[in-house]
Design a protein around this nucleic acid. Sequence first.
DNA 1: CGTCCACTGGAATCAAGGGTCT
DNA 2: AGACCCTTGATTCCAGTGGACG
Length: 402
Amino acid sequence: MKKRSVLIKNRSFLHTTYIPDQLPHRENEITNIVEIITPSLNKNKPSNILVIGKTGTGKTAVLNYIGRELKKEDSTEENCSFLYVNCEIVDNPYGILFNISNQIIKDHNNKIPFTGWSLDKVYDTIINYIESESKIFIIVLDEIDKILQKSGDDIFYFLTTMNEVLTDSKISIIGVTNNTKFIELLSPKIKSRLGEEKVVFPPYDSEQLESILKRRAELAFESGVIEEGVISLCAGMSAKDSGDARKALDLLRVSAEIAERNGDSLITEAHVRSAWNEMEKDAVQEVIRTLPDQSKMVLMSCITAHENKKNVSVITGDVYSVYKDICNSMYTVPLKEKRVTDLISELDMLGIIHARVKSFGRNGRTREIDINVNKDTIEFIKKDELFEPLRKHKPAKQTTLL
DNA sequence: CGTCCACTGGAATCAAGGGTCT
DNA sequence: AGACCCTTGATTCCAGTGGACG
């Protein structure tokens, strides 16, 4: 067995949580946002900003960076505070307000409980605290579209009207989204308030990615462990795929890890290619693994339905009847049809399956469902422990001793 | 041209489970 | 202890609907 080699000198520089001192190729966006925001240093309310750009275009990094710079200018937070909320993690109104409040309220005895209060009460308490601080609060709502999806836009109404009640303090909202259509989904009045200013982050191109990777690689790796061309390959593959710097960085890291695991002393293009495959696979399988049981069962039903009717399109009704069978075999009570179709929609949004509505004329109008993962992943799903009882149930060969 | 299928998609509602407040 | 509050997952209800078929 080969020995594990060490190629990475400092792993943290390859990690996506690391915020570099300089963000290359984002100078325009930074100055743009900074210009909008600087009035806050003199206790003037800046406009609300909507930051739009795909994943991995540096939105979050830029905002964190700006937050840090702001704190340098105003270290005691005399005039303004910078708050960050990730709406992918807390995606309900109460959670958002709770999160904001806990960053504002320093006194541990007066913190808002994480559940139990009415929204009105939380809202009033927050307003009082904000007012008493008499300064500007800049609130970053990252992944803002996630809230809209799950809880509608009431919360935005809450937040954007806050300023009408406040006198000594003001809040300013920076909404971050990777969904370009996000604005259109808002109701008109909120649309105009939230999107007073817009900053768009274009995806990185291949050259930009390459320079970013080079910079990080110098910090992270021992010298001479990267084969010529590896970095530009990482950049090229990522640029072609999505222009996602995070993914490009991960790709480089995983390549290095594979090389280390193999005990190789040089990171080669072959490592990059296998890293790419591994990442694709891992990402999907991780999503599937953490799916709720009912979603897994619906997914399993989609797969089974496909196996049952080869080459014929599978529709909602097919999936549901297979689903009921599976529930039977597993001695669980099936959910109602509406719920199952909703779960199908969710799987569709996750990209695991592909469901598009199609009319079959006299034969109704429904969704045609395709599986969107490869064979390996299908096997992976079937092996899920949830379906253990199914495997005991099925095999026909071994039924003698009864 | 109208019919009619097999759902879609939205809204209202319920139940359970987390909690606080008085 | 009882009244309330919020969230989540699920159910119930129902008004559409694209297009093949007659």
